[in-house]
């Protein structure tokens, strides 16, 4: 595993996103306390931690759903005290959800087409005609979406309403929808939760392919420690909203604080 990782390591270096001293609270509950870490271009960055550690809240801060009370977020050299969902989306941050958040009434194809929304520009007038430029645009984007469908091997379910699909496929469609945005930074919130071994292996393969061939930077939350250790370049560990460790999988695995957090500590 070390060979290819080093190859990736050479192309990395530049910081794509950095969170600096972020604190987030809901009333009296502190979800995140003074957490700082960075995500470098081209890496797979894992965020792990026990339940309620603030991992999903962290992703919500990054793509602008939650606005932190303190701290700064630097993305592509621009420093902000908060992101907004539209800004995040238009600057290339895509995301999947822990509980699948597909558009249930729409087909697989339409779901993934929604991911192209920001790249489609024909206005109401041409949309009303569905002819000429509007139709050409629609077909161009359809072609792109079909490439994603091929990549994820979901050709057979293109026209199926996603509400009828089994869970594993829904997760895959959701990944497809995020990919349709051609993201620079892809946030995956437990992409392998509730999957069986084979589905997990498939998903790992897609994530690695994305990272290696398309150079997409990936930040993922995952509970399967085996998967995290194999996939990721660097790991950040949260517990009760605090960062307790940050480093390569090997470093994190050996960190006594991480071991305490996961296995408990004798008092």
């Amino acid at each position: 595993m070390s060979g290819p990782k080093d190859a990736v390591g050479e192309t990395m270096g530049e910081t794509l996103l950095a969170v600096d001293g972020v604190s987030l609270g809901f009333g009296g509950v502190k979800a995140i306390t003074d957490v700082s870490f960075d995500i470098r271009k081209g890496e797979i960055r894992a965020i792990i931690g026990p339940n309620g550690a603030g991992k999903t809240s962290m992703l919500n801060v990054i793509n602008g759903f939650y606005h932190p009370q303190q701290g700064r977020i630097t993305y592509k050299g621009q420093t902000r005290s908060r992101m907004r969902p539209y800004q995040a989306a238009s600057q290339g941050i895509a995301r999947t959800f822990q509980n699948v958040a597909l558009f249930r009434g729409m087909s697989t194809l339409d779901n993934i087409m929604v991911g192209r929304t920001l790249r489609m520009h024909r206005g109401l007038f041409w949309q009303m005609l569905r002819f000429g430029p509007a139709m050409r645009e629609e077909i161009d984007h359809r072609r792109h979406v079909e490439d994603i469908i091929d990549f994820l091997q979901i050709e057979a379910i293109r026209k199926t309403p996603v509400g009828k699909l089994p869970y594993g496929l829904q997760k895959r469609v959701e990944l497809g929808r995020a990919l349709a945005m051609e993201p620079e930074l892809l946030l995956l919130d437990e992409p392998m939760a509730g999957m069986n071994m084979e589905e997990k292996e498939d998903m790992c393969r897609y994530i690695l392919d994305l990272n290696r061939h398309f150079g997409t930077t990936i930040a993922l939350i995952e509970h399967d420690i085996g998967v995290v250790m194999d996939l990721s370049d660097r790991v950040v560990v949260l517990e009760y909203g605090h960062k307790i460790a940050d480093g390569t999988p090997e470093e994190v695995k050996a960190d006594p604080k991480v071991i305490d957090a996961y296995l408990g500590v004798g008092h």
């Binding site: 759903f65 989306a89 558009f103 729409m106 339409d110 920001l118 949309q127 629609e138 929808r177």
Partner: peptide
Amino acid sequence: RIGRTWMAVRDMDIAAQLMG
């Protein structure tokens, strides 16, 4: 596109916001 935007807002507005 516009119809898909509407349906996305209907089905899951949080995810729709993430799509921009």
